[in-house]
Write a protein that binds this DNA or RNA. Structure first.
Lengths: 336, 336
DNA sequence: TAGAGGCGGTTACCCGGTTCAGAGCCGGGA
DNA sequence: TCCCGGCTCTGAACCGGGTAACCGCCTCTA
């Protein structure tokens, strides 16, 4: 059972396939009566345009790409990416755009995937995530001339269009809040140090603490295990911090458990703040004070921008809302 | 700057484009010398086959689809899907297959997506997840004649190839373990009742408890919130259970927190078992006894089967390993 | 009544790669 | 010497749509 083509419709309707093409694309050149007849036949036999044939005429692929360079085990737990993807999907689905996804293990492999996708006319554009300092992927994408939206800070995105949120602002708000609560020794269990947003948070954290609190930063790979280990080390030190800010909620939950295991009571002895709110933060006891941001909306904005870019519009860098501090039960006054 | 085509290579090499096609596809019909020359030129000018043009000749799209019919907020927290996807990706990447992803909100919309993808020759096959009882998508896919692998129990998969793991076995093992620990009132906080695997677990749970324990099953939507609410209700009842089995780890973590909030000590007063192990289960205190299965491997098997199906091989239903009980600190002897 | 112009439709060719039927050439065996 | 077979390579057609150019017909206008 072959898939129906416009030629089938044409012979059924007794017209040329060009008439069918015009009719089905809403272009002038056919009478309304003929158009209606053709559309009815197309409907009846379940015709769909063959995307390959369309793409061959230089049409859009109606598809955008996303390559994720993170180990599978991290992707599984990190809610950020699925939320981002669901936000992206929401916008794409409205325009019948598809999302092509691939998990890769290195930036080199990622660039190779971009070259292949673009060379094969599979996609019209890509999202770039997890920006590194002096990221080789930027140059690669610029060379390809492919529409791309960088989800990350514009200072490192080269000539590519960027969308980001001001993590510095969020850090300042959090440190301000903790200092107001009397905390003077504040630690940060941060993510991968090679990521641009980690570096930005590091810097903002150091600056915000300047003169008012003593900052400590520990870098991890975002896994709960490393978050727990870092917490254990921090809480074992002679001058242990009275507050810890975690770069994701998985590590914050792990840290909370370590504190309970070590009989450090939260929030009496230790305040805990999680970056990126998720149902997880609300579900543990005490519920976690978190830096809330609407990640699906972030993804949706990125998708809108990529589609605009593909449509040939110029897209200035866009600053999304900064994460807002949502105080819950895991933070309180510093112990005396 | 146009993308190079085989015609460009042909004119450079002074041969016809047919010769180029044969040379680049490793087909007989060109001498080794000519082939080497052509391949060198292709390499030099960075030629990539245009997937649209290939697809037009009835070639494979080198792409498979996955539509997820779950609300975005669930997808974000539920590690299952990202782990499944990363397992699928691992196999696909090796064969340069891409994964087309779409989040939908209804089965009707999902079927529509399949029709479109297939009609447009975008994909060679699909994965079907979250099987319902008397699922309309099965008939739809059978009608389309598209290769499909059902990730779910073969009793409901119609003529489609299925891959599943024996949840009944896992339930029996868990109930046996809890009963051996002296538990007589066991509750299950289950997922969506319309899902086939939920129904299978329900039945297995009721059967396993037959004569040895008193079963209670509460259905939820897999979110931490509902897991917490169900737990609160269960623990408030006069004859509260001494053990609870949760259908995912998010709900188990939520339930653990509720227990702590209600001063029900785990595992002294209550044993907790989580379905689907993830770093999360290890990270909370006490660490959760969990039904461990290798979800990435599950996804990888599914992907291998789908590719075999696309290659025209016949693929019998495949039973993956059942989830194995991993005892940790959250389970213990029933209180006296 | 002839020319202009719009409508409705067609023919012809393009996109980039694959495939089929041969054509030309060479060497070897009868 | 002739014929056959195999190896290389080519022209043409094809996949399923899109599009430029053009053509006949009808109507309106000068």
């Amino acid at each position: 059972m072959k898939r129906p083509t416009i030629a089938d419709i044409a012979s059924r309707a007794g017209v040329s396939k060009v008439a069918v093409s015009y009719a089905l694309n809403g272009q002038p050149g056919v009478s309304e009566a003929t158009r209606a007849r053709i559309v009815a036949i197309a409907e009846e036999i379940g015709w769909r345009p063959n995307s390959a044939a369309r793409a061959l005429n230089g049409a859009r692929a109606d598809c955008v790409g996303l390559a994720l360079c993170r180990p599978a085990r991290v992707l599984g737990v990190e809610p950020f990416f699925m939320e981002l993807i669901s936000g992206i999907e929401g916008v794409l689905a409205d325009r019948s755009y598809a999302l092509l996804l691939q998990v890769v293990t290195s930036h080199q492999q990622e660039s190779e995937v971009y070259r292949r996708w673009w060379g094969e006319s599979r996609i019209d554009g890509v999202f770039l995530v997890d920006l590194h300092t002096s990221d080789t992927r930027i140059g690669e994408l610029e060379r390809l001339g492919m529409p791309a939206v960088v989800i990350g800070h514009p200072s490192e995105s080269g000539s590519l269009s960027a969308i980001w949120s001001d993590d510095g602002q969020a850090v300042r708000e959090t440190v301000g809040y903790l200092v107001a609560l009397g905390h003077r020794r504040i630690a940060r269990v941060a993510g991968l140090p090679e990521l641009v947003h980690t570096a930005l948070r590091d810097r903002a954290f150091a600056e915000a603490c300047q003169g008012v609190a003593e900052p400590v930063t520990v870098h991890t790979d975002y896994t709960g295990e490393e978050g727990a280990r870092a917490t254990r080390r921090l809480l074992s030190s002679p001058d242990r911090p009275t507050a810890i800010i975690y770069d994701n909620d998985i590590m914050a939950v792990a840290g909370l458990s370590v504190a309970q295991e070590m009989r450090v009571e939260v929030p009496r002895d230790l305040s805990v703040v999680a970056w990126d709110d998720s149902p997880l933060s609300r579900v543990v006891r005490p519920p976690l004070t978190a830096l809330t941001r609407d990640i699906p909306a972030y993804g949706a904005h990125a998708a809108q921008r990529l589609l605009a870019l593909i449509a040939g519009e110029s897209v200035p860098p866009y600053e999304d809302q900064a994460a807002a501090l949502t105080p819950r039960g895991s933070t309180g006054p510093a112990p005396l």
